[in-house]
Amino acid sequence: MAENSPGLDVNAKGNAAHPRPNSWTLFRLWLAIGAQSFGGGTATQYLIYQAFVDRRRWLRPEEFAHSFSVCQLTPGINLLALTILLGWRLRGPSGVAISLAGLLLPSVTITVLMTALYAGVREHPVVRAALRGIVPATVGLGLLMSWQIAKPLLAASRSIRNGSLLVDLLVLTTSGLFVLYFSPPIVAMLLAGGTAAGTYGWLRARTASRVETG
């Protein structure tokens, strides 16, 4: 129970299902996650799940899953949205500030220092040659990541409706070709892509329900 666990305030309202961690415990946890989060988002998500669901049971697995899918719909970095949402659930506004600070302090500090060090040597011929090797590698990673993002989306389209996959592929190629040849404002084009797929889904759903009722 909550009283026996170290580092917990007993919730004033006596809600034992959602014990609130104290600020310092919460900060230390996020700091540890931030410091260990080498290798991108997936590893970090796992660390968060382990810390908040497995070990401390501050969240149920389905609450975590719900939070995670909400974060996919949020602008910006998904992992930061997850951090904000969990911080809010556990301690309200102060929880958000504490969690973000904990997660970002190690990684931001290291990122800035690495860049500063790099900026000092970036004109050195060896460094320039190294960069020429790194850029194609980064592009390779970018291609892989595009595929990882696109795959579940396209798979979902394929499983719902036949035409939806075709619309997705059209949106994908049209936005690429438009940028290549006409350089339109990117934001407008992304919104157009979204609107096209959204309208198509909506029209299909409407026709489907008409067929059912009529």
Partner: peptide, 10 residues
């Protein structure tokens, strides 16, 4: 979904 796919195209 369309927005995410557009992002990939660009």
């Amino acid at each position: 979904r369309g927005l995410s796919i557009s992002v990939i195209g660009v």
